[in-house]
């Protein structure tokens, strides 16, 4: 039997010590201030959404014979991830949903070694309509578009990354 040395510490962190001091601010005040700060970055965020969108469109419209290679898909995933982040930060819920759906599809295609550009293109066209300042869509129209995107995912039976995929389908970026 192997003897294993084991220690249990009960450290008091500096963070805990500092947070215990008198003064400071209330949660609601801190949140109000932070939200203002983030909203102050809206212009930067919108610029980044537009740039990422332009990069994705340049990639997909250069697809040859309706195919996108692995490198193009990976690049597209990075840009789409950026859009998801911005859209969620600034509460553009429909754009966030469409971008997440694009990530699901692109990731699914990569995982299966498929190169179809069509499901990607339809997602990008939907996202273009949802970019702030683009089309003025009614609630029903947005719901219809998102439902159609869901049908594309269902057709390929891709799992949703946001809902947690089985371990064997996960992206391999996290290196230990």
């Amino acid at each position: 039997m192997t003897r294993v040395s084991k220690m249990i510490h009960f450290p008091k962190t500096r963070l805990a010590e500092l947070a215990e001091r008198h003064g400071g601010m209330t949660r609601s005040h801190a949140l109000e201030e932070a939200t203002k700060g983030v909203q102050g970055m809206l212009d930067v965020g919108l610029d980044m959404i537009r740039q990422a969108m332009a990069a994705i469109e340049a990639t997909i419209y250069s697809a040859k014979q309706g195919r996108l290679d692995h490198a193009a898909m990976q690049g597209l995933l990075r840009q789409a991830d950026q859009i998801v982040t911005m859209a969620a930060t600034f509460a553009y819920a429909t754009l966030e949903e469409a971008s997440k759906s694009l990530c699901d599809v692109a990731d699914g295609l990569v995982a299966r070694g498929m190169t179809d550009a069509a499901p990607i293109i339809v997602h990008v066209q939907a996202m273009r309509l949802m970019i702030p300042g683009s089309a003025n869509l009614a609630e029903g129209e947005v719901a219809l578009i998102l439902a159609e995107l869901a049908r594309v995912r269902d057709h390929y039976r891709f799992v949703r990354l946001s809902s947690g995929a089985p371990a064997d389908l996960e992206p391999s970026e996290i290196v230990t």
């Binding site: 947070a19 001091r21 003064g23």
Partner: peptide, 30 residues
Amino acid sequence: KINLGGVTTLLVDGDTFMRGSIAQMLRRFG
């Protein structure tokens, strides 16, 4: 109330925007 004044954070993130927005939030928390 929580007093986070003087707390130093090390933020490691390759995404410029995320870095900026998190730094902004941390500063606003004091």
